[in-house]
């Protein structure tokens, strides 16, 4: 029985819910059981946003994550709020262009990736989130990078077809980071 609980947190507008959706669809494609639970309400309009994604090979119980296996922190308040909830042995992905502190825990694996800066440099400013997701896929064999383009195809509306390529570019950047 393997279950991965992923908590993604940041500002509204950083694509938090979208990256969660990507992971949920990817899980669906890998024939896992999945749940995707967004925060909702006024905070979505520019405040904090978070998203709970659970991927499991058995039916998902509670869709609400209290001790994530993986935390993706896209801003400082989110890191501070959730850093101590991550399960011992879990992973934390940090946007190190926006967060300039280090995690003081020794029992988790931490990835510092300056994704906001990378996205800016590559001209894909709004897709920093997907760079992190690309790196996460590389670290999670149960998801794998294969088929990512199919998921993007599913998620990006036809009207915004140009975004498909950019999303793939972001995912690849993340995949190859530090290689």
């Amino acid at each position: 029985m393997k279950t991965t609980e992923i908590l993604i947190a940041g500002f509204g507008g950083q694509g938090i819910l979208f990256s969660g959706k990507f992971l949920a669809y990817k899980g669906l494609m890998e024939e896992l059981q999945v749940s995707w639970l967004p925060s909702y309400g006024p905070e979505m309009r520019g405040g904090t946003a978070n998203c709970n994604v659970i991927l499991s090979d058995t039916p998902v119980g509670s869709p609400i994550i209290t001790t994530p296996d993986v935390l993706i922190a896209m801003n400082l308040p989110s890191l501070q709020k959730y850093v101590n909830t991550v399960r011992c042995g879990g992973q934390i992905y940090i946007d190190s262009s926006l967060i300039n502190i280090k995690v003081e825990r020794n029992d988790v694996e931490v990835f510092y990736i300056p994704v906001t800066q990378m996205a800016k440099d590559e001209g894909i400013g709004s897709l920093a989130n997907m760079i992190i997701v690309g790196h996460l896929l590389e670290n999670h064999p149960e998801l794998s990078f294969d088929g990512a383009s199919e998921v993007v195809e599913n998620l990006v509306p036809p009207k915004k077809a140009a975004l498909k390529e950019l999303n793939m570019k972001a995912l690849s950047l993340g995949k190859n980071y530090n290689k």
């Binding site: 949920a24 999945v34 639970l37 967004p38 998902v60």
Partner: peptide, 10 residues
């Protein structure tokens, strides 16, 4: 409730 309404599952 709001959770089941807002969440996505297959």
């Amino acid at each position: 409730d709001g959770t089941i309404g807002q969440m996505m599952e297959p």
